[in-house]
Simulated scan of single mutants.
Amino acid sequence: MIDLYVYYKVRDEDADRLAPLVCALQARVIQPGHARLLRRPESRDGMQTWMEVYPDVPESFAAELEAAVAGAGFEGLIEGPRRVEVFTEFPPCA
Rank of each mutant, 00 (worst) to 15 (best):
R83V: 13
A70Y: 05
K9S: 08
V86M: 11
E52F: 02
C23P: 01
R83H: 15
E85K: 10
R44T: 07
R28P: 01
L18G: 01
L38A: 05
P32N: 05
F87D: 04
A63L: 09
P55N: 02
V29Q: 05
G73K: 00
R44P: 00
A27Y: 01
D56C: 11
V53D: 02
A67L: 07
V22Y: 03
P41K: 04
R83S: 15
G76R: 04
Q26A: 08
E75A: 10
A62E: 12
M51A: 08
R36A: 07
G33E: 03
V84N: 13
R83T: 11
C93S: 10
G46P: 00
G71W: 04
E66D: 13
F61L: 04
M1P: 11
P91G: 11
E64I: 13
Y5T: 07
G76Y: 04
F61T: 04
G73I: 00
P32Q: 05
F74V: 03
A19L: 11
R17F: 13
R17D: 10
L18A: 01
G71D: 01
W50V: 00
G46H: 02
L25H: 03
L21Q: 02
E42A: 08
P81T: 14
A94F: 12
V69S: 06
E79G: 07
Y7A: 09
V6I: 12
G46C: 01
E52Q: 06
R40V: 09
V69L: 08
I2V: 15
F90H: 15
V69Y: 08
R40S: 11
D56Q: 13
R17L: 11
R28Q: 10
R82Q: 05
E85W: 07
E85Y: 07
I30K: 08
R44W: 07
V29E: 08
E13D: 09
L21T: 03
D16P: 02
F74I: 03
Q48S: 12
D56M: 15
V10A: 01
Q31K: 13
Q31A: 15
S60E: 11
V69A: 09
R11Y: 06
D3M: 05
A19W: 06
A24E: 15
P58N: 07
P91Q: 12
C23K: 12
D45I: 04
P58R: 09
L25T: 00
P41H: 10
P58A: 10
V69I: 11
P81A: 12
V53T: 05
V29A: 06
A19Q: 11
R39D: 00
E64T: 12
Y5K: 11
G71A: 05
G80R: 01
T88G: 13
Q31P: 06
A94Y: 15
F61H: 07
D56N: 14
V29T: 05
V22N: 00
Y8R: 04
L18Q: 00
A63G: 15
G80C: 04
T88H: 12
Y7M: 10
P32S: 04
